[in-house]
């Protein structure tokens, strides 16, 4: 079985792509890649994989953290953590 390496992005890519933390409630997108290896591992364990679609459900009353729907369940994460997810 072949092992897939996750790609880590270069700075120049940052202009085109949006981070999950920039999404507003109601917005939908597909995970492209991660910018933080440690965080990516935790996120993938929770079902946030490249190619998986995400719906931003709501923000906490004070604007942080955010609640998203991913692979059929709801997940909350801090904006700082969401900023490591690059969306297509």
């Amino acid at each position: 079985m072949e092992l897939i390496q996750i790609s880590f992005i270069f700075d120049s890519d940052l202009d085109r792509d949006m981070k999950l933390s920039q999404f507003l409630p109601g917005q939908t997108g597909i995970i492209k890649e991660f910018t933080d290896l440690e965080m990516s591992v935790k996120l993938m364990e929770m079902g946030c994989l490249p190619g998986e679609s995400i719906v931003v459900e709501r923000l906490a009353p004070l604007g942080d953290p955010m609640a998203i729907t991913v692979s059929g369940y709801q997940l909350s994460l801090r904006k700082k953590e969401a900023s490591t997810i690059i969306m297509q």
Binding site: L3, L37, M44, L49
Partner: peptide, 26 residues
């Protein structure tokens, strides 16, 4: 450690997707 864990996780999800492909319908 982390790189190894990342590739392991992706490989496992590939396996899981294969398993679930014709066993779970949503």
């Amino acid at each position: 450690s982390q790189k190894s864990q990342a590739s392991e996780t992706i490989a496992r999800y590939n396996f899981i997707n294969d398993v679930l492909f014709d066993t779970v319908k949503i």
